[in-house]
């Protein structure tokens, strides 16, 4: 079957057939405009999340408690910059530039993961972000390794390999706290109390409320629904919390033998909407800091372009 054949006869049906047969869509293949737009939205949002996500943890690099922790944290935040790069590159295969995507972020048209609008107040927060937030990201990204768009899928495979190191570094930050002094235990529990619910919100609204859900599933951009992913995360995380001796701040959390899953309480969707709509504690600062760094770097990028231009014309 040639591309001509595909585009001359019902291209959308042929496209869907490829997706259904688990054949990856590549940049030069025909794709519905909605698929392209949906992917640009999702991949750029994912890239922005990696980059904005550098801020809450980056906030502790200069204050990390030991030399070893400082190095590991710096390497971890550096990885996130790398993930941002892979993802911007994957999105660029869809005909959008990094500059466009960053512009859309600064103008408020593109979103990033809302979780990063919460502040990191103590060192334990750095551990909990690595453990909970990165675990949640992995649950989502593992399913995205099978996403239908080739470049996105390959970026996810690479990223997943590194994320498991991130998750472990978070857990390793928490271990000495969980078995440490009363102060350290309290610090870890307090971080758990503040990050648990926002982490559950990372998977997005219930499937019944999800705007992009159905079409994304049909096109196999998403492979599991928000609620399925959330359940996977809770099921795998509860035993880890027990191991650390940290209480999960949900009185309704209990094992349901019949379902073979944990039951859990209802998420505060008002809080979710407040933060998503830009009114979380750090939304403004996260965006302002990113756009300030971008602005302050403009003269450097300009000098670089000028030099390249001189080399070309020399």
């Amino acid at each position: 079957m040639t591309d001509d054949h595909l585009s001359n006869t019902e291209p959308e049906a042929a496209f869907q057939e490829r997706v259904d047969n688990e054949i990856k869509i590549e940049p030069k293949d025909w794709m519905p405009e909605g698929y392209r737009r949906n992917l640009i939205r999702q991949i750029s949002q994912h890239a922005h999340s990696e980059v904005i996500g550098m801020q809450p943890e980056g906030n502790w690099i200069t204050r990390a408690p030991t030399l070893k922790r400082k190095m590991i944290l710096l390497a971890k935040v550096q990885d996130e910059a790398g993930h941002g790069l892979y993802l911007y590159s994957a999105a660029e295969t869809l005909g959008v530039t990094r500059e466009d995507m960053i512009g859309a972020l600064h103008e408020g048209h593109a979103k990033y993961a809302s979780i990063f609008n919460y502040p990191t107040l103590t060192w334990a927060d750095v551990g909990v972000i690595g453990w909970l937030v990165d675990s949640a990201a992995i649950v989502n990204q593992i399913s995205l390794q099978r996403t239908s768009y080739g470049p996105y899928s390959r970026a996810m495979i690479r990223i997943c390999k590194e994320e498991s190191f991130h998750q472990r570094q978070g857990f390793e930050i928490l271990m000495p706290l969980a078995s440490g002094s009363l102060e350290q235990k309290a610090m870890a529990q307090d971080a758990m109390n503040r990050w648990w619910w926002p982490t559950l919100m990372m998977f997005g609204p219930h499937d019944s409320e999800s705007v992009h859900g159905a079409k994304s599933m049909q096109w196999k951009i998403k492979r599991k629904s928000n609620d399925e992913l959330r359940q996977d995360f809770i099921d795998q995380t509860v035993p880890q919390a027990e191991y650390l001796g940290l209480a999960i701040p949900d009185p309704d959390l209990k094992w349901n033998e019949e379902r073979g899953h944990y039951d859990f309480g209802e998420i505060d969707w008002d809080e979710f909407r407040t933060v998503v709509s830009g009114n979380g504690l750090c939304n403004r600062e996260r965006l302002e800091r990113h756009s300030r760094a971008h602005r302050e770097g403009e003269w450097v990028r300009e000098a670089m372009r000028a030099c390249e231009e001189k080399k070309r014309t020399a």
């Binding site: 980059v51 550098m54 801020q55 980056g58 690099i61 200069t62 400082k70 710096l74 935040v77 550096q78 910059a81 790398g82 941002g84 790069l85 911007y88 800091r289 760094a293 302050e296 770097g297 403009e298 450097v300 990028r301």
Partner: peptide
């Protein structure tokens, strides 16, 4: 390390 997340572009940050 103070530059982390503030460099003129991502490649330079890394």
């Amino acid at each position: 390390s103070e530059w982390c997340g503030r460099a003129p572009f991502l490649e330079e940050d890394i």
